[in-house]
Amino acid sequence: MKIYVYIIRRLILMIFVLFGVSVIVFVLARGFPSALDPAAMYITEHTTAEQYAKIVEDHGFNKPLYVQYFYWLQDVFGGDWGVSKWAASQPTYKVFFDRFPYTVELTVVAVLMTVAIGIPLGIISAIRNNKIEDHVSRLIALTGYSTPSYWMGYVLQLIFFYYFYMWGLPYLPNKGMVDEFLLGTIPRVSGVPILDGLLAGNLTYAWSALVHVLMPAFTLAFISLGTLARLIRASMLEVMRQDYIILARSKGLAERVVIYRHAMKNALIPAVTLTGLLFAGLLGGAMITEYVFTWPGVGRMSLQAVFQGDSNFLLLYSLVLAAIIVFTNLVVDVLYAFLDPRIKY
């Protein structure tokens, strides 16, 4: 019973946090009109001074900040998130949710790669503790962690796109999420390109989508696998020192069985939670990678939003992603309780 209370408490906390985030972003984005003009989204080069004044009056940009916030809250609860100019003045939520699945695709593939490479790397590191394999694995993990994402992105493009092309090898594309001539050839169901391609039975589309996502996902994965590998390593080392491992060996079990049946189950529990957090973090943090690969996701949009002063988009973006982050934290904590039989709420 207590676990439901816990969940409800966390959800209430989530609402509080979201308010906090919205206030901070609002204050920053609208509170300094000299730096970021809140009316920027509604004007063009041809706007006259009178039209400008009218726009300011209509939207209440000249009112005190807390009043503006209140208006914004009203709008938001009515479903109106404002307008984003550079996407042909479309409503902001459409701009966001049109592109959100692309970021999701990128993140999911990146997380899969991270797990596929990071977990074995961590296990090897732990089993061969302080031997050469350990040092090499740690070096790889730490290098990944220290790599600037734009550097990795560009280097990958240099090799697999540019040089491979120069050398006549099959090359990976460096822009967008599908080949341009394929855009719009299939119905949009989920918005995730690979998924939609498979659902429509159009394997060319799906393949093209897969090929496009490889480099950007790998860039993200390379950076993240360090944390995961290190966590697994530490966790495994800790577990292997436990007394129950000695007991398992004393039963005459082969070392492989000891590792896979006894040690790993214990060691992987924190990894599950980390993977969840990784997913949430990558969703919001892929902006540079999206920029470098011209990936039409929300990260790239947020960059443009900052430069263009699009406070509407920034608010929506921050709130959606903050909600995902907080919610993922909650899910991960609850999951931990399920996975580790020792924890009772």
Binding site: Q242, D243, Y244, I246, L247, A248, R249, S250, K251, G252, L253, A254, R261, H262, K265, N266, I269, D340, P341, R342
Partner: peptide, 24 residues
């Protein structure tokens, strides 16, 4: 040695809390 551990010599340890695997 593993053969012997499995069938011929068995050891019982001191602290049953830490010597039993908590997730099994």
């Amino acid at each position: 040695i593993r053969e012997i551990r499995a069938k011929q010599i068995a050891m019982i340890f001191q602290d049953p809390m830490t010597y039993l695997n908590p997730v099994l």
